[in-house]
């Protein structure tokens, strides 16, 4: 066990050579990147860029923290760059956000359409967190990038709105429009998937 370099203590102390990085850190960095980008190819790309930058700037690794943490730091930077580039590219296309869920949920006067939301788990309903999380993950994947990026940066990375606006080069009002649309779309998606799954399970029983 003492020779297992994957234990936390060893990870703190050991700097392993680049040829072993894939085995030691590949999955960890990929999962992290995937959780932020929700795109397998993009996640693999940023992990690759991280490793290459790690080799290039290996001399800058001071050895004070863990090597995994150092690489994660590089990865976070690469993810920011990737998202910024993607946003820049996508914004160049059109100024109208085609993915506005409000018209499905509200009527012309801005009131909820009947049955827009039916989510009302009873106190005795047992919601399994892992299952719920999987449903949320599935719905996050379906969100358009423009909405998902602001949502994830705010909720997962706990960045303040000023920082997000700067990173994505958007105005605060644009940020809140995207955030609200993301919340609405996500809630609608999770609700319908959850209720759907529940009905199916009910039938099976």
């Amino acid at each position: 066990m003492a020779n297992d370099p994957s234990t936390a203590a060893d990870l703190e102390a050991t700097a392993i050579p680049p040829e072993q990085w894939i085995d030691q850190y590949g999955d960890y960095l990929y999962r992290y990147a995937y959780s932020r980008l929700r795109d397998g190819n993009a996640a693999e790309e940023v992990v690759q860029e991280t490793f290459l930058a790690g080799i290039r700037y290996a001399h800058q690794y001071a050895g004070t923290g863990s090597q995994r943490g150092w690489l994660l730091g590089i990865l976070k930077r690469k993810i920011i760059d990737h998202v910024r580039q993607r946003n820049r590219y996508e914004r160049a296309g059109s100024y109208v956000d085609e993915n506005d869920p409000t018209s499905q949920l509200f009527d012309a006067q801005g009131n909820w359409k009947t049955g827009a939301f039916r989510w009302s788990p009873q106190p005795d309903d047992h919601i399994r967190e892992v299952e719920f999380r999987q449903v949320v993950e599935g719905c996050l994947e379906k969100l358009p990038h423009t909405q998902r990026d602001v949502f994830q940066k705010s909720v997962m990375d706990e960045k303040d709105s000023e920082e997000i606006c700067k990173e994505l080069d958007i105005t605060p009002s644009n940020l809140w429009v995207r955030m609200h649309r993301a919340r609405l779309a996500l809630a609608k998606c999770v609700e319908s998937k959850w209720l759907n799954d529940k009905e199916k399970t009910g039938h099976a029983e």
Binding site: E129, F132, Q152, V155
Partner: peptide, 10 residues
Amino acid sequence: KIHDSVVEMA
């Protein structure tokens, strides 16, 4: 609930 779940995911 979604908010909490995403924070946990992070």
